[in-house]
Amino acid sequence: MSTASLAKPQPQEGSPTMAGPPHGITTRDLCLWYAKFQALKNITVRIRHGIITSLIGPSGCGKTTFLRCLNRVNERYGYVTTQGEIQIHGKNIYDADVSLIELRKQVGMVFQRPNPLPISIYENVVFGLRIHNEKKASRSELDAAVEKSLTEVGLWNDLKDRLQARATSLQLEQQQKLCIARLLPLKPDLILMDEPCSSLDVEGTRAIEELMRELRGRYTIVIVTHNMAQARRASDECIFMLLGELVEHSRTEDLFLSPKDSKTADYIEGRYG
């Protein structure tokens, strides 16, 4: 089963950006077409485990498409064709024996607009446990998972007295944190974030970025962002994409201070985009 091969490697001690940590995601010649339009062109990249990697680039450059390949959610749409290879912890996720259910359990996604389910806060957090556990989880297990996950995202103190309230009635920032908390009980390896702050205000953005920093090390985080300043603030490594191609991938400070490619330099200086 894919579960075994997708098992999480031991997290490395010390600074994860130093040489040595295993590569969380490796893609080779990844191409993707929406019907006839090629949205990704030969993406070959290695994304390290346990750090935050940001994807930047102008609208339509394929960064969201790339992100959505990593848990194969793109395939929900019939006209998408994919070629190439994506390895997550050494396992090609396009192999025939990979179960999409197990894959998505371990590769969680956070969306642009917070999308809590229209059920209670409590049920949102345990939703994953409920759908993945063969036998009914006991009340105390669920309670523990809720407390742990909400504590991890910093919502526990605010929400512990109204866990039965409707999740969609929370403030946007809390909703987005809840969407992250919803992934945690499943112990994902990888958290994908698709512009998680674009519908949040300054405070909300700060809170989510802080949360990302908290989660860094335990989870591999890949974040798509429109906001270059955010990529600079919040990520360890940065990937610049343009027209479906990967232009540059390096440490964030290197990419912003001394970009190797002139297209990267033009973009980060705001000459287009």
């Binding site: 969680g108 999308n115 759908i131």
Partner: peptide, 14 residues
């Protein structure tokens, strides 16, 4: 809304 479905699919719901 489709976003509800996406939320479910992305935690591995069938």
């Amino acid at each position: 809304p489709v976003s509800f479905r996406e939320a479910c699919w992305n935690v591995g719901a069938t």
